[in-house]
Design a protein around this nucleic acid. Structure first.
Length: 424
DNA sequence: TCTGGGGTCCTAGGACCC
DNA sequence: TCTGGGGTCCTAGGACCC
């Protein structure tokens, strides 16, 4: 049986989400900023036409925003996550076999659909998602995942395709590969693109003509899979259920320079709690916790410092209280006075299913009690929002919190503010 | 003044075991 | 002089993704 995949990609996703709830933005340049309002991470087509590159620091576009030529939004991940769920739900009406690849991309297995009119089927998908969610999407259909990426990119770029491109005919596939620069191929990053261009491999088509051996030697087995995929031989399957994460990281830059231990401690405790919650969501526990802190690497006048510390937990855990406890111990070891800190983070690893935790005979922690408490906290968090209930170390004022000056309301999940509740 | 955050896979090399 | 060899596990580092 021949394989067939569609890649559905939301156009300018974060910017499109902001537009759904403020139609006056339609046809106008819109950008969405990274955490801390640091730089541009999403742009509407009109913003791209203004020449604003991806990753542009905010201060460089500030004039445009203040003079009213450009709308800028702080990122609102709660809103985008909820809109993403709606898009994925809609897509799963078209085939039971989907892989949610990222917040704004989804692979659809159309392996059973070879006999139908793929072009009108793809258009039907596009129209339906637009109607049901307000989000514009593009579709690329092809015999392999990598080729569906190629098709999707051209679908978006070409005015003729207008958002839908079906690549099943060998001649069309060849033309598409020829029109795709090597650096635009999925799986070819900056390093490999430079390496290949030096050897006169400039397009995806050039790449497909290389020998398996040469690619294996220079780009590992990953490169060989890509090679085969681009030649039309499917080697990447659809991953329908996301496997549990092997590492979970929560880290943020601070909204300002932080000089006091107490502030860093609050921030780090909050990140540890966030990691614990992520662990509970995937029903896992972690054996290791790493804390890292660093100063602002862009600030040439400041003394620079980076350090990290990993601690092995006596018993794998996903409790806010325990992870905060060990994060604190690690932090105390690496914290040095006299630096201006810009960022800290917590990484949990050595992740195992929560029902396979090795208990310790000398364990002094009442794990059942912890689990019940965390269950209650999660329930309250789901009802009333993030951080309404927290461990005291996480602090109250959170002066270190990231800047988010232009955030839209959480239209789809808004809840009334309630009094903060603290757990000791 | 201002520069994101969170992941994955693969390989090489060292430690360790028999 | 010579000082096995194969297997496995772990880690660090390099590449990539959105």
């Amino acid at each position: 049986m021949t394989s067939l995949f569609a890649l559905c990609d939301c156009n300018n996703f974060y910017a499109s989400c902001e537009r759904v709830f403020d139609p006056s933005l339609n046809g106008k340049p819109v950008v969405v900023l990274s955490n801390n309002d640091g730089c541009v991470i999403a742009r509407s087509n009109e913003a791209k036409a203004l020449g604003i590159p991806m990753g542009e620091p905010y201060f460089k576009i500030r004039n445009l925003v203040e003079s009213g030529y450009l709308s800028a939004y702080s990122s609102n991940y709660v809103l985008y996550g909820d809109m993403s769920d709606r898009v994925m739900q809609t897509l799963s009406n078209f085939t039971p076999n989907v892989e949610v690849y990222s917040i704004d991309e989804c692979f659809l297995d159309l392996g059973d659909f070879y006999d139908i009119d793929l072009f009108s089927y793809a258009w039907n998908i596009k129209r339906t998602v637009q109607q049901w969610t307000g989000i514009p999407v593009s579709l690329g259909v092809a015999p392999t995942k990598a080729l569906s990426k190629v098709a999707n990119r051209l679908a978006k770029k070409s005015t003729k395709a207008n958002g839908v491109l079906v690549l099943t005919d060998p001649y069309h596939i060849q033309k598409a590969l020829e029109a795709t620069k090597i650096e635009d191929v999925w799986g070819i990053g900056g390093q490999y693109a430079k390496f290949l261009k030096k050897r006169n491999i400039n397009t995806a088509l050039d790449f497909t003509k290389l020998s398996d051996n040469w690619v294996k030697q220079n780009m590992t087995i990953v490169g060989v899979r890509l090679l085969k995929e681009l030649r039309g031989e499917s080697c990447l399957e659809l991953d329908e259920v996301a496997p549990p994460k092997k590492n979970i990281c929560t880290s943020r830059s601070f909204g300002k320079k932080v000089n006091s231990f107490d502030e860093i401690q609050e921030a780090t405790a909050s990140y540890a709690a966030k990691c614990a919650r992520k662990l509970r969501q995937q029903k896992s526990c972690a054996n290791l916790i790493t804390v890292f802190i660093h100063t602002n690497r862009f600030s040439e006048n400041d003394k620079q410092y980076y350090n990290s510390k990993t601690i092995c937990l006596p018993v794998a855990s996903n409790s806010d209280i325990e992870l905060i406890h060990y994060a604190n111990i690690a932090l105390k070891e690496i914290y040095r006075d006299g630096y201006s800190y810009k960022k800290s983070g917590v990484i949990v690893s050595g992740i195992i299913p929560e029902n396979q935790v090795q208990l310790d005979l000398l364990d002094t922690v009442d794990r059942d009690k912890h689990a019940r408490l965390m269950g209650v906290i999660d329930g309250l968090t789901n009802r009333f929002g993030r951080s309404k209930v927290r461990v005291a170390t996480q602090g109250v004022d959170n002066t270190w919190m990231l800047k988010s000056d232009f955030k839209s309301p959480c239209y789809t999940t808004r809840i009334d503010e309630i009094q903060n509740v603290y757990v000791r």
